[in-house]
Deep mutational scan, measured.
Amino acid sequence: ENVVSAPMPGKVLRVLVRVGDRVRVGQGLLVLEAMKMENEIPSPRDGVVKRILVKEGEIVDTGQPLIELG
């Protein structure tokens, strides 16, 4: 699984990683606000951040690609 998608609609509050960062399974990639709750979106696997597909403040839909892992 190379693309991390939004599990719910919401607003991207914070991106916690940068392109080139090594991440571990379960590590927070970004914080999504949904229904006034902050939800940290975890990495599904170990890898390297290849691309960040959203910006802070952006509104996303369920299933929208957020981050690509390499």
Rank of each mutant, 00 (worst) to 15 (best):
E1W: 15
E1T: 14
E1M: 15
E1A: 15
E1L: 15
N2H: 03
N2K: 11
V3H: 06
V3L: 04
V3P: 09
V3A: 02
S5K: 10
S5D: 12
S5Q: 01
S5Y: 06
A6P: 00
A6V: 03
P7T: 13
P7V: 13
M8H: 06
M8L: 00
M8G: 10
P9V: 07
P9S: 07
P9Y: 03
P9N: 08
G10E: 08
G10A: 07
G10R: 13
K11P: 02
K11D: 06
V12L: 03
V12D: 15
V12Q: 14
V12R: 15
V12M: 04
L13T: 04
L13G: 06
L13W: 09
R14K: 13
R14D: 06
R14T: 00
R14C: 14
R14W: 01
V15K: 07
V15I: 09
V15P: 04
L16S: 09
L16Y: 11
L16P: 02
V17N: 06
V17A: 05
V17E: 10
R18G: 09
R18D: 07
V19K: 10
V19Y: 00
V19L: 12
G20N: 12
G20D: 00
G20S: 06
D21S: 10
D21G: 00
D21M: 13
R22F: 12
R22K: 02
V23L: 11
V23T: 11
V23C: 14
V23F: 05
R24M: 11
R24C: 13
R24F: 01
R24P: 07
R24D: 05
R24T: 01
R24K: 10
V25M: 00
V25P: 08
V25Q: 12
V25A: 11
V25N: 11
G26W: 05
G26H: 06
G26D: 05
G26M: 09
G26R: 09
Q27W: 07
Q27D: 01
G28Q: 05
G28W: 08
L29I: 04
L29R: 15
L29N: 13
L30F: 13
V31R: 00
V31N: 01
V31K: 07
V31F: 11
L32N: 07
L32K: 08
L32W: 03
E33K: 04
E33L: 08
E33S: 08
E33A: 07
E33M: 00
A34L: 09
M35E: 08
M35S: 06
M35Q: 02
M35H: 11
K36E: 08
K36C: 08
K36W: 09
K36H: 03
K36G: 12
M37C: 14
M37K: 05
E38I: 01
E38F: 02
E38S: 10
N39E: 09
N39D: 05
N39K: 10
E40N: 00
I41H: 02
I41A: 10
I41Y: 00
P42S: 06
P42F: 07
P42C: 14
P42G: 04
P44I: 07
R45A: 04
R45S: 04
R45T: 07
R45E: 12
R45M: 04
R45F: 07
D46C: 14
D46K: 03
D46E: 10
D46S: 07
D46Q: 03
D46L: 05
G47T: 02
G47D: 05
V48M: 10
V48R: 13
V48I: 10
V48W: 09
V49I: 00
V49C: 14
V49Y: 12
K50G: 10
K50Y: 04
K50D: 06
K50A: 02
R51H: 09
I52E: 04
L53R: 07
L53A: 00
L53S: 03
L53E: 07
V54M: 02
V54N: 06
K55W: 05
E56F: 03
G57E: 10
G57D: 02
G57N: 02
G57Q: 08
E58I: 01
E58N: 10
I59T: 12
I59A: 06
I59K: 01
I59S: 00
V60L: 11
V60N: 09
V60C: 15
V60A: 03
V60W: 04
D61L: 11
D61R: 05
D61V: 00
D61S: 09
T62A: 13
T62V: 06
G63H: 07
G63R: 03
G63Y: 05
Q64F: 04
Q64P: 11
Q64L: 06
Q64M: 12
P65V: 10
P65A: 10
P65H: 10
P65L: 12
P65C: 14
L66I: 10
L66C: 14
I67L: 00
I67P: 15
E68T: 15
E68A: 15
E68W: 13
E68N: 15
L69Q: 06
L69D: 04
G70R: 13
G70T: 07
G70W: 02
